[in-house]
Write a protein that binds this DNA or RNA. Structure first.
Length: 466
RNA sequence: GCUCCCAUCGUCUAGAGGCCUAGGACGGAGCCCUCUCAAGGCUUAAACCCCGGUUCGAAUCCGGGUGGGAGCGCCA
């Protein structure tokens, strides 16, 4: 039987970084086994589900490059089917109407809590034959009362639940809409899902789902519950830890593949290997090697991974994201050196694309103001003299090539009897507005002669006035 | 409270009874290199939660404790 996995988020917000990881695991598992990866939108809670959230999820998945193999399924479009299945169960006696009011249930729970018991439905409508007039009933699943359910979890191993611990959960609300646990079961069954890879928070739902599946005569899929991601302080990851939505990671300057690489190593490992190509991830990933304990999210490590990707990736592959960041800074990248060339020149010193964009802005836009400290330190009267001489040298260059620029700069330092720093640093501040840039020959070459000379002149004037 | 899960450096992890004087990576510290910032190279500090048991031998197996997490809705 071929593998079918699925990612089933509820559209009540952005695509969470933890959700992205379970999606990735599902995706990789399907890819590895030549199966299918499906996407299902669990929007049965019409109160909280929004179209904007659906879009946010699609956008996030697309940015990460986690494409589903078929059109996404929306649960709200399957209400008819859930109703049919519920009716079948009613007929078969595996489900029954319950007329208890919310107040009644509430009271029951309170009493159980007071007795220090686990709050659960006590099955008082199980054998009711007559409807309660004027009450719209809910439909409950008739859970087996004896025996146990064994969840053979791919990650956690066997987990045993006593049926006596489980109660009769509601599968259809009094307004006729189906509930989560019921939709999941019907969908996983009819979508032919063979491997359910999902968050840890669903383990306790699993025995119920298996019971319903069995009542339906279906073979339960395999389950793998991946531990959640914690914040750096060991507490559940939330907004106060910073970015949680995957699109925020784009804004922070991360490459999608770097995010994926970081995520796959969070809770999973393959020996000592840290970096994986997409192909390696698909080939090497193994759900059974996923860690059982939750892992903390470490931004520092992500930054490192991202930097590694920036350094290794072909510049053509990062140009798109780089452009996006430049434009975000209000810079028009068309007017200046090729993005690929700038990436090559900058990537050693930039760990994120935000950093790269900020440090590369000067290639595409005029220097609005010098960094105060850098200007004070390097644009001195002595530097004015050097800049002056340099302008003359550069103007005279027969060819605007890195080698020629290099020779001119070094030659000038020698002629003036100063260290290279004494000429390179003023140049940096002059052309970049700050004392940080790629190697000076590279920088001037990319910037172009025209722009270089204008900025050198401006800086010379600025320095001379001091 | 009840049910279920988990536990190796600060963090992510390797480790499936002797290969462990516990390895790698991020981060930290130091040194080298150097036109800035980096990158790179080298060195270094840093962990098996505790207590019992099994065994010739336990980070690895078992039991208990402690600590963390998840779930207990007409939410998903």
């Amino acid at each position: 039987m071929s593998v079918v996995t699925r990612f089933a988020p509820s559209p009540t917000g952005y695509l969470h970084i933890g959700g992205a990881r379970t999606a990735l695991f599902s995706y990789l598992y399907a890819r590895k086994h030549g199966g299918k990866f499906l996407l299902r939108i669990e929007d049965t809670d019409r109160e909280r589900s929004t179209d904007a959230a659906v879009k946010a999820i699609f956008d996030g998945m697309e940015w990460l490059g986690l494409a589903a193999d078929e059109k996404p399924i929306f649960q709200t479009q399957r209400f008819g089917r859930y109703g049919e299945v519920a009716q079948d169960m009613l007929k078969a006696g595996t489900a029954y109407h319950c007329y208890c009011s919310k107040e009644e249930l509430e009271q029951m729970r309170n009493e159980q809590m007071a007795r220090k018991e686990k709050p659960r439905y006590d099955g008082r409508c199980r054998h009711r034959t007559e409807p309660r007039p004027g009450v719209q009933p809910v439909i409950r699943f008739r859970n087996p009362t004896g025996g146990a359910v064994v969840v053979r979890d791919l990650i956690k191993g066997d987990i045993v639940f006593q049926n006596a611990e489980l109660d009769d959960l509601i599968i259809v609300r009094s307004d006729g809409t189906p509930t989560y646990n019921f939709c999941v079961v019907v969908d996983d069954w009819e979508m032919g899902v063979t491997h359910v890879i999902r968050g840890d928070d669903h383990v306790n739902n699993t025995p119920r789902q298996i019971n319903i599946l069995s009542a339906l005569g279906a073979t339960p899929p395999q389950y793998g519950h991946v531990p959640m991601i914690l914040g750096s302080d060991g507490v559940k990851l939330s907004k106060r830890h910073g970015a949680v939505s995957v699109v925020e990671y784009r804004a922070l300057g991360f490459l999608p593949d770097a995010v994926l690489n970081y995520l796959v190593r969070l809770g999973w490992s393959y020996g000592d290997q840290e970096l994986f190509t997409r192909e390696e991830m698909q080939r090497l990933f193994d759900i059974e090697r996923v860690q059982k304990a939750p892992a903390r999210f470490d931004m520092e490590k992500l930054v490192w991974v991202n930097h590694e990707y920036l350094k290794r990736e072909a510049p053509e592959n990062v140009a798109g994201e780089f452009r996006w960041h430049l434009e975000r800074l209000g810079v028009q990248p068309a007017d200046g050196p090729k993005l690929e060339d700038v990436i090559l020149a900058q990537r050693e010193r930039c760990k994120t694309l935000v950093e790269m964009a900020e440090k590369s802005k000067f290639f595409y836009a005029d220097v609005a103001a010098y960094n105060e400290k850098d200007a004070a330190k390097h644009l001195t009267p002595a530097a004015a003299d050097i800049l002056d001489a340099l302008v003359a040298e550069l103007k005279a260059l027969p060819e605007w090539k890195p080698e020629a620029i290099h020779a001119a700069v070094h030659g000038l330092a020698e002629k003036k009897g100063v260290g290279l720093g004494a000429v390179a640093q003023p140049i940096r501040v002059a052309v970049a507005g700050m004392a940080v840039s790629p190697p000076i020959d590279r920088t001037l070459f990319l910037l172009g002669r025209e722009r270089t000379l204008v900025r050198l002149e401006a800086a010379r004037a600025y320095a001379a006035k001091k």
